[in-house]
Simulated scan of single mutants.
Amino acid sequence: MALDPYKAAEFIKNTAPGFTPRVGIILGSGLGGLAEKIDAVVTIGFDDIPDFPRSTVEGHDGQLILGRLGGMPVVCMKGRIHLYEGGNPEDLAVPVRTMKLLGIDILLVTNAAGSFHESAGPGSLMLISDHINLTGRNPLVGENDDRFGPRFFPMTDAYDPTLRAHFKAIAEELDIPLSEGVYLHYLGPNFETPAEIRAFRVLGADAVGMSTTPEVLVARHCGLRVAAISNITNLVAGLSKTELSHQQTLDCAKLAAEDLEKLVIIFLETLKRELLKAHLKEGADGNGQ
């Protein structure tokens, strides 16, 4: 039986009555430290939420945190579910749809990824400008749920250009190196072969990982604005001088974690001010009519 995001959202609303998040955050492997910065209203285990998928991967704690970060009301997934964990791909639509039902307008996604460029190696951050989904899977396959979005929808500006410009301006101000590029989603759970990496380079990939595209597809289907950042934890196979492993991913995720935390917090602080200005302007325009 398919999981129901309405049941999940109802449970969460009853657990945190009166709290409406504006931004949803999904934290990738080894990036749970940002969750500790949230002034939490409530923390709920994925296992405790009815009709919510469970995470089974080390480094993904499986907690949903509602609270304020940078003054912005947020709902944060500390950990995520991956296609390679098995189960029904449609279940990956549930977390994003649940956050949409809670009230978010913007989804911020992070992940750990391997870089194709030695100039943007471990310890650096990459702003995702576009993606290539090579998994052959999509959580929206099957009967369309018209309550969330149309059967067919565009992905031209899947990664919101205005939000990307906002992140780049903040990174420049904070003197945090932030490259920008195309993320390729590889199914996994194995790391890529050198031959596959050579093929992906021809396709135009700048970084590769095992997540993100399902969440972005679902977010765009239901009209959310999206921004995404890769924490570069390694160079890809053929460039890396060390053997790739999940433990290395977790260890190297710490290298740029502090920069990522600063970037996201300032992003949310400035975003809150911009939203407040827009709200006040709408009110003034309305009063003037």
Rank of each mutant, 00 (worst) to 15 (best):
N138V: 13
K13T: 09
D146I: 02
C222N: 11
G121V: 03
G67R: 13
G136Y: 09
L224N: 00
K241R: 15
D175Q: 14
T162L: 13
P189Q: 03
L64V: 15
F200Y: 15
E258N: 04
V75D: 03
Q247F: 00
A120H: 11
N231W: 02
I132F: 09
T270A: 04
P21W: 13
C76I: 02
R68L: 05
I81K: 15
P154Q: 10
N144M: 04
N144F: 07
G103S: 12
I197N: 04
L102Y: 08
D146H: 03
E274I: 04
P177K: 10
I106V: 14
S29P: 06
R164D: 09
G67K: 15
D39Q: 15
H82I: 12
I49E: 10
Q63E: 14
T98D: 09
G32Q: 01
G24W: 06
T233N: 02
H221P: 00
L66V: 03
I104W: 05
D105A: 06
L276D: 09
G181S: 14
K281V: 06
N133A: 12
R80F: 14
G114T: 14
D91R: 01
Y84A: 04
L83N: 02
G33R: 00
A93M: 07
C76L: 03
E143N: 07
K281Y: 03
A8P: 08
L163E: 00
A171F: 07
L260S: 03
R201C: 01
P139Y: 08
A113C: 12
K100N: 04
D61G: 08
F153K: 06
G71S: 12
L184H: 01
I176A: 03
H117K: 14
L178N: 05
P17N: 06
N88L: 08
L83Q: 06
Q247C: 00
Y84F: 12
G86S: 10
I170C: 08
P73M: 02
R273F: 01
T156H: 14
T162F: 04
I197G: 06
A2Y: 05
F152R: 09
A171D: 06
D206T: 09
S240D: 03
L255V: 00
L263G: 04
E85I: 06
V202I: 15
L178F: 08
R97W: 01
Q248S: 08
L127Y: 05
G18R: 12
G204I: 05
R225F: 01
I132M: 11
I65G: 03
D175C: 03
K281L: 11
V216W: 00
P21C: 01
L3R: 14
Q247K: 12
V218T: 15
G136V: 10
V94I: 15
F148A: 06
P17V: 11
N138F: 13
H131S: 14
L31Q: 12
L224Q: 00
G87A: 13
P139L: 14
I38A: 07
G283Q: 09
S245V: 13
K281F: 01
F116R: 07
S119C: 01
I176P: 03
